[in-house]
Design a protein around this nucleic acid. Structure first.
Length: 477
RNA sequence: CGAGGUGUGGCUCAGUUUGGUUAGAGCGCUACGUUAGGGACGUAGAGGCCGCAGGUUCAAAUCCUGUCACCUCGACCA
């Protein structure tokens, strides 16, 4: 929702410079601090609390589907990384190598994991013998390192936190089913908890994961119309199984290769929360993921009884994540602070309110002021938070819809891409040459071939030959 | 990896062109007091060998050489 006036001077407005706005918000909300290690960020308590909320809820979703957590080593021996050809070619340019232990040079270099497929495969080769050992549904929460050229907080850092799920199945069908199932877990989580609508679909061969048979993705649209790949789920077929010799004996005593999947979501999703919901006053957090859901701000707090009342209300609201800002800053300061941090609502309590046995509840997203009797503040707060959560999703959906266009030829495509930020739905012949040409000419990449297909036209937007699929195109982070 | 740019108290910067007393400002920080419904005010104070290493000079934040780091934009990626 557009703000009438800019209340926080330190934050660059997003219309002026979106990238700078993003950096300002990340810093002012105290999510991160830059560290002295190039490309690595320090996640501060508030940022980490946000990650913990994401982690806790997503982890529960995984476990509900039978997934178990494990922890794998940080290092991968070079020989292990080399086993799957496409995989090593995809990751070799960006891995960090450990060459020495103390003063001694290692016999074999170790890479700091950029992802752990190889380690999981190595494990599976050892522990899977029979069809009775399947499926294996493992996940780990960890950090990985990718030596990126340019970095940005949350969106791309040298080290980042994520989870990586790795599963092994007896059949191809079961693996494909799991791949789609986990993609849906991500998409549902993003909609329900983060209030971010996702486009679900399949990646083109060019964009798929190194070593995968198929990669599925959820793509979100940021406020500036750019795409953010927010989670991926890969079907590996039996490619890794053949490279790592992961075989089991089936019911008929025949040796079979397993079929595998992997799927991941990272701290990058925090970047999506910022860029989908944030405004010119700072962060706006969906109530279901906010570390603090309501900040009680006492007015004239040194007046008799004000602070006591504030604590009393906090106690009353103990089912919610509520804090009292009893610092000796001015109320105006506290308002701004609450807004920069995206705390969903603030509750103002001053002498006038106490007289009337009420509080002023102000929504962060709309700044709507709601006068609530202290007798019914619990029910009202629950209502307000719920309404805010669903309003945020609706707004994000509306933004996605209103910034999605269709193009039937390159003239239309180029027209849109240079004038209107957003996604373009257009047909494709599935020839990589066209995908490359579109990227060269417009800077837009194929985001995905969505599950929900439409027939925009019969022919490829680029070459005009018969089309095979509809693709979402867009500029991406 | 290509092209630009920047390094001066915690932050944002001025000062460098033309070397010259004791290096400045705003914000923030500390103490005390007055305040308080959208970033209050007063008083007092703390905090910098100007990224680092050499060099030129009577004298270097300023000139020279080297080096490191970071930022922006491109090519690669969650």
């Amino acid at each position: 929702m557009a703000q009438e006036k800019k209340l926080v001077e330190e934050i660059t407005s997003m219309e002026e410079d979106f990238a700078q706005w993003y950096t300002d918000v990340v810093k002012k909300a105290e999510l991160i601090e830059y560290s002295s290690v190039k490309g690595c960020m320090i996640i501060r308590p508030y940022g980490y609390a946000l990650w913990e909320n994401i982690q806790r809820q997503l982890d529960a979703d995984f476990k509900a589907t039978g997934v178990e957590n494990v922890y794998m080593p940080l290092f991968i021996p070079e020989s292990l990384l080399q086993k799957e050809k496409d995989h090593v070619e995809g990751f070799a340019p960006e891995v960090a190598w450990v060459t020495h232990g103390g003063e001694e040079k290692l016999q074999e270099r170790l890479c700091v994991r950029p992802t752990s497929e190889t380690l999981f495969c190595d494990l599976y080769a050892n522990i899977i013998q029979s069809y009775r050992d399947l499926p294996k549904l493992y996940n780990q929460w960890c950090s990985v390192v990718r030596w990126e050229k340019t970095t940005r907080p949350f969106l791309r850092s040298t080290e980042f936190l994520w989870q990586e799920g790795h599963t092994a199945h007896a059949t191809e069908e079961e693996a494909i089913e799991r791949t789609i199932q986990m993609l849906n877990v991500y998409a549902d989580f993003c909609e329900r908890v983060l209030a971010i609508p996702m486009i679900k679909g399949k990646k083109s061969d060019k964009e798929k994961f190194a070593g995968a048979k198929s990669t599925y993705t959820i793509e979100a649209m940021m406020h500036d119309g750019k795409a953010l790949q927010s989670g991926t789920s890969h079907d590996f077929g039996d490619g890794f199984a053949r490279a790592f010799d992961i075989q089991y004996t089936d019911k008929n005593n025949q040796l079979q290769y397993v079929h595998q999947t992997s799927w991941g979501m990272s701290t990058r999703i925090i970047g999506a929360i910022i860029m989908v919901h944030g405004d010119n006053s700072g962060l706006v957090l969906p109530p279901k993921v906010a570390p603090v859901q309501a900040m009680i701000i006492p007015i004239a707090q040194n007046k008799e009884g004000v602070l006591d009342k504030a604590y009393e209300v906090k106690e009353k609201l103990k089912d919610f994540k509520v804090k009292v800002d009893d610092s000796d800053k001015t109320p105006g300061w506290k308002f701004s602070e609450q807004e920069m941090r995206g705390i969903p609502v603030r509750i103002e309590i001053g002498p006038k309110d106490i007289e009337k046995n009420q509080a002023v509840v102000v929504r962060r997203d709309t700044r709507e002021k709601i006068f609530v009797s202290l007798d019914e503040i619990e029910e009202k707060l629950a209502e307000i938070l719920e309404k805010m959560q669903s309003d945020m999703l609706e707004r994000a959906k509306a933004h996605l819809a209103s910034h999605t266009y269709t193009a039937k030829n390159m003239q239309e495509f180029e027209e849109i891409i240079s004038n209107k930020p957003g996604f373009i739905k257009a047909m494709w012949c599935m020839d990589e040459a066209c995908e490359n040409e579109i990227k060269d000419r417009t800077g837009a990449t194929s985001r995905c071939m969505p599950f929900e297909q439409e027939n925009i036209d019969d022919n490829c937007v680029c070459c005009g030959k018969p089309a095979k699929t509809m693709v979402y195109w867009g500029k991406a982070y």
